[in-house]
Amino acid sequence: MIRTENLTKVYRMGEVEVQALRDVNLEIQDGEFIAIAGPSGSGKSTLLNMIGCLDKPTSGAVFIDDIDTGKLSENKLAEIRREKIGFIFQQFNLIHTLNALENVALPMFFAGVGRETRLKRAEELLAKVGLGDRVDHKPSELSGGEQQRMAIARALSNDPEIIIGDEPTGNVDTEAGNAIMDLLEGLNREGRTIIVVTHDAEIAARAGRTKRMRDGKVLD
C-alpha cells in the first residue's frame, strides 16, 4: 500500500516559491489501477516523483508498505526504485546507445543479476510487450509506441509491485496509446499497482479510479 501524509513540496527558485504539492493525503491500495488527471502545473508529476522515490518531500511523508521513504538513505531509495517500482516516462527515456535487449536488461544489471538470466528475462519481457522481433533494435529505429512498450518491458525488468507512468501515452497516437493501456491493464490483472498520470479522459476512464489535482492539491 502507498500512503501520503500531508505531502508538501515547495520549489524555491531564487525569491520565488512554488508550492507544487500542498498537504496531499492519498491512499493507493495494492493492486489498484489509479489515474491522476488535472491541468498542467497542478503537481501531477511532482506527486509521482515523490511516490516513485525520485525526490524527497519538503514536509509530510510517503509510505510504501508502511516504510517512511523520507527516512531512507539514497542507497535504500535506489534499491526501492530498482526492486519495487517501475517508472514509465512520457519521453520514453531509453538509453539510445543500447539496443532493446540491453535497455530492458539494464535495471537487472544494476541489481547484479547474472548475465544469462538477465538477457533471457529481457527477451521474455520484450516478447511480452510484443517486441520479440525487435531485440537488436536501437530505440531510434522504433516507433514511439514501440519505444514506450520497450520502456514498459524495462520497467518490468526487476518484477516490481508498482508501475508508475507519467503520461505514458502522451507522446504516441491513439492506437499505440490503447496498446499501451492494454498492456498496463494486463499488468494490473497480474496484481501490480498501476498509477498513471493522463490528460486523456478516455484513458483515465480505463483506470479503476481517477483522482483530479489542482494547484498542488488532490481533489476529493
Partner: peptide, 16 residues
C-alpha cells in the same frame, strides 16, 4: 545528465 537521471530513476545507485 539526462541519461544519468534515467539510470538512477530505474534503480542505479550512486556507486553504479
Amino acid at each position: 545528465t539526462h541519461e544519468i537521471g534515467v539510470m538512477k530513476a530505474i534503480g542505479a545507485k550512486n556507486r553504479n
